[in-house]
Amino acid sequence: MCQTCGCATVGEIAIDADRHHHHHQSIASHPPRQKIAIDRGILSKNDRLAEQNREYFKTKGVFVLNILSSPGSGKTALIERMLQDCNEFCIGVIVGDLETDNDARRLRSHGAPAIQITTGNACHLEAGMVARAAEQLDLDALDLLIIENVGNLVCPAAYDLGEDLRVVLLSVTEGEDKPLKYPTIFKTAEVAIVNKIDLAAAVEFDRSLSIANIKQIAPQATIFEVSAKTGRGMEDWEAYLRKNILLTSC
């Protein structure tokens, strides 16, 4: 049998080359198939850049947060509250959105350097985007860099940005079962923050069910319950953060 194409020819075929359909005219018309093993992560380039970011931020003594949530959970409000409360630290922000620089402008109004990344159609931030945005910040002057990811509970999970701490935020208005619906992202987070607890009663939020769901899906995560709007519960989260920032700067 022909090894090239599987046709039923045997040995040295003496059929007229003009009439026979292929391989004896030119082997080049049927080059053999070859398997190439690659075994490489599709996002390996991002992972490499993220590791470079992590090393670079470390040499600059900057602690880095990557905050993930669905749109409207209150990421920007949480950061605004942190800028007010943790003003003993120099904090910079990189914020990702599909369009507009509204969030960066909100954050700059608190005096923080804030770089907006508009991703166009991309649904997540990548390590390379963060590296380019960070070039616009004076990292030597910063203690904390907060990356506000694009509002999305799916895609950002796969992209390491070089952060020290991955924080997933959900709000009481989204329902108690958010971690069950988006388990992947919750399983990658070191911290889970429940926001808008000031609205819990109004939306009949079942606090214990929500906490139980997070603990079951993401037992590795430290959980905080806050209202970025009223400031309730922020002190526990901020104490945890302060401890981590100080450990980095030592």
Partner: peptide, 8 residues
Amino acid sequence: LEIASLEV
């Protein structure tokens, strides 16, 4: 999330 191999 990996690319394992190719056939070329």
